[in-house]
């Protein structure tokens, strides 16, 4: 069953596993960057001002109900084949969890802390950037990592419209009734998801203040 995966022939060339893996990773990372650039400022702004929270919740729920397959196909029909439809579909998928995590994270910052930030003379921009966002980071990462898992798994369907990524193995395998190839594709996607999550877990450890870890874990005393 693992024969397909470990056949050296499948590990080289422009349609080999390394290339597909990098394509898949590329879709994932660029999607996450675009989605974060849209969702974090939106969630942070609404969380900071406290106004329009219902818009965030409503928008998140509506986007969550959108079937990614349909979005992908629609954009292909409108704009033609290529990577663009893939990014549209995946970004729409990634925005809700990141936006909801950011919004919830900012709202969850202790109001006393925010009051103190203003009290010592921070301007609103500093209150948001130096106090609210750093304190919201654990929840922002929660949403972001959830989005990352979904994007890695769902980027697979990009191959349905002829784009690259590990989904190629699944759809090509399906067309050829090559079960080994399909299974290899699925295993590789799951593996990539775990690796991506580990990577972000590491990034989270590096960028979230140790002061925000649950009491008793880490830190010197």
């Amino acid at each position: 069953m693992g024969g397909w995966l470990f056949d050296p022939a499948h590990w080289s060339g422009t349609t080999g596993i390394p290339v597909r893996l990098l394509e898949h990773l590329g879709y994932t990372l660029l999607t996450l960057v675009i989605a974060a650039l849209i969702a974090i400022p939106l969630g942070a702004f609404v969380g900071h001002t406290g106004k329009g929270g219902f818009v965030i919740v409503g928008l998140s729920n509506a986007l969550r109900a959108l079937p990614t397959t349909a979005v992908l196909i629609l954009v292909v029909l409108w704009a033609g084949l290529g990577d663009f439809p893939v990014y549209v579909a995946l970004v729409l998928l990634a925005i809700p969890p990141i936006m909801a995590g950011t919004y919830a994270g900012i709202r969850a910052v202790d109001p006393v802390t925010v009051d103190a930030a203003r009290g010592v003379g921070m301007r609103e921009s500093s209150v948001l950037l130096q106090v609210e966002i750093p304190n919201a980071l654990p929840l922002i990462y929660g949403g972001f990592r959830g989005a990352a898992l979904q994007v890695v798994a769902t980027a697979t369907i990009a191959a349905y419209t002829g784009a690259g990524g590990l989904g190629r193995f699944v759809f090509d395998g399906l067309a050829l009734q090559d079960f080994g190839q399909m299974l290899a594709g699925a295993v590789l996607v799951a593996l990539l998801a775990v690796l991506v999550d580990l990577g972000f877990a590491g990034l989270q450890r590096l960028t979230v203040s140790p002061g925000l870890r649950p009491v008793g874990s880490g830190g010197k005393s």
Binding site: D110, V112, T113, D115, A116, G119, V120, N135, G211, L212
Partner: peptide, 11 residues
């Protein structure tokens, strides 16, 4: 300015 719960920045 000093407040009741100290209001230190946890991060």
């Amino acid at each position: 300015y000093v407040i009741q719960q100290a209001g230190l920045f946890p991060h």
